[in-house]
Nucleic acid binder design. Structure first.
Lengths: 242, 242
DNA sequence: TAGTGGTCTAGACCACGCT
DNA sequence: GCGTGGTCTAGACCACTAC
């Protein structure tokens, strides 16, 4: 026996409308009942139906026009914005049923190098923590990571032993951030990278660059190169998200 | 002179709270004022502050616990979910300041082939529209696309002249969908693909597989292979989105 | 068990924009 | 002009949970 919580009236109205739209019963452009009609139909106050319709409009599923009514959106929520998952590598490997391994290859606390734009962007003239590490799945190399951390934003980072814990996992669990930017591309592994990843030089790698900030202060920059055939990103989209 | 619309009380309260959190004045874990305190502070009813706090909780910026209060979220909204832009290629190329070009290489209306899982998933035993095309930027190959369309979901598609208009652009403008799934990886171009893209065989390509549905009905499946060094995806994250 | 958030009501006034 | 949605009020009852 499954005993479900009684859904709230709000949820009932919302799912009623959503399923009519998704089933195609109410096609794009269809004028859905006015708020006062829904009030009567569900025997509730206007605030309740208004909240539902406002939420649906924010999610992009309907459009509302004063004096005209509310309509099933002609363009379903933008294709350009889909939810992309970029999980912690360690968690992701374990979830896929492999053993996770990690090697810290380099570790330095030094000034930013003049030629490295990403280093200067992170700390300016100050010092940074620079690391290079290798992620393994079932003992085989999966990804190569170059990681920079701004110790001014995260002083505790100087005390952490990153030979045990990957910096990405530690940061995810311990440091909060407010903004991030990712760039995803495909590149061929250089000879040196290929050697570390134990693949032929030129092998296609999925490359993710990510920088995160807290407010205006940069926290970390990372470039991860994944073996293209061993790792992929998945993005899903369903209405109601945006 | 800039004359702004007076923001609603709701918006004022929301931005007040957001800016305190983002500035760090209210750190993660901080207990924000109770609803009745905010009511008094802003001289408004409880519904108004409740709506603001509920919205902030949905966006992941705060957490609410009965009998305890509302708290600045310890983990800012999930890293795993960032907004990824996957725009129309034609639009994207033009936006980047290049001339867009398009070539339809193959075009067939036929049954799904037994060995092709993606074809069977799309139309089962029915017919499908199969295309192959090349996207160009400034006359140079940028991406190779294999596109399948389910004519049962989109009958009009049989009338469209895809030698003029890329199928992706047409679909985006004319067909609504409710669900999508993307897979992003890096692969080496095969000899044949490399020839079409005018690059050496084995060149790293950013590969995007996408399938979309309307309700339970599959609409289209597409695999795009972009030259890795000529194209990248950008994903941004900022609080308030999810 | 007391106080918080979760939900809902039955009104109200206003701004906008079809007609 | 007038009907729609946009916003807000001043209550209410309930469920949950920290104390």
């Amino acid at each position: 026996m499954k005993s479900k919580k009684a859904p709230t009236l709000n949820q009932r109205i919302r799912s009623d409308i959503e399923s009519r739209i998704l089933s195609g019963e109410w096609e794009p452009g269809y004028r859905i009942p006015f708020e006062h009609e829904l009030m009567e139909q569900y025997g509730c106050s206007r605030m309740t139906v208004n909240k539902v319709l406002t939420t649906l409009a924010e999610s992009g599923m309907i459009e509302r026009r004063r004096r005209a009514g509310s309509f099933v959106a002609r363009q379903p929520p933008h294709l350009e914005h889909v939810a992309l998952e970029i999980p912690d590598i360690a968690v992701s490997v374990i979830q896929r049923g492999h053993a996770y391994g990690f090697q810290l290859l380099e570790h330095a606390h030094r000034k930013a190098r003049a030629g490295q734009a990403e280093e200067l962007a992170l700390v300016g003239a100050g010092k940074l923590l620079a690391m290079r590490c290798l992620h393994l799945a079932d003992g085989k190399p999966l990804a190569l990571e170059r990681r920079l951390i701004n110790p001014e934003a995260v002083p505790e980072t100087l005390e952490v032993d990153f030979s045990v814990q990957p910096p990405g996992s530690w940061l995810l669990q311990n440091v909060s951030w407010t903004r991030g930017e990712h760039r995803i591309s495909a590149v061929a592994a250089t000879a040196e990278e290929a050697a570390l990843l134990q693949v032929p030089a030129g092998t296609a790698c999925l490359t993710i660059d990510r920088q995160t900030w807290r407010g205006e202060q940069p926290i970390t920059w990372v470039r991860q190169k994944f073996l293209g055939d061993a790792y992929d990103l998945i993005a899903r989209f369903a209405p109601g998200n945006r």
